[in-house]
């Protein structure tokens, strides 16, 4: 059973604000899913190589030749906050008070 403390820790890592009700429900739901998943931990997998990519292919490399970038206006058009040609954000370390 996932504790509320663990749920809060994971939510903090994932930068998700959860309401109390959401966090409580999450603890129950995740616990039930993990209980199902836990069956694989009982399998004998000694010596089995992990699969990160289904194919054993080699990454193709790209020639070091510039291609045009996107127009700045097109990128900034989607931005919630624009300042001085950049994407505006609250300063890291600055507090809201």
């Amino acid at each position: 059973m996932l504790s509320r403390h663990e749920v809060d820790h994971v939510a903090a890592l994932a930068r998700l604000a959860l309401t109390d009700a959401e966090a409580e429900r999450m603890a129950v739901e995740l616990s039930s899913i993990l209980e199902h998943i836990d069956r694989i931990r009982a399998l004998d997998l000694d010596g089995v190589a992990p699969t990160a990519h289904v194919s054993d292919a080699t990454a193709p490399l790209r020639p070091d030749v510039p291609v045009p970038s996107l127009p700045r206006e097109a990128l900034l058009a989607a931005a919630p906050e624009v300042a001085d040609g950049g994407f505006g954000v609250p300063s890291p370390g600055a507090s809201a008070q």
Binding site: D84, G85, G86, G88, P90, S91, A94
Partner: peptide
């Protein structure tokens, strides 16, 4: 100094 500023901008 980072701690003085309230807003920052990002240049990618």
């Amino acid at each position: 100094r980072i701690h003085d500023a309230r807003r920052s901008i990002v240049d990618f």
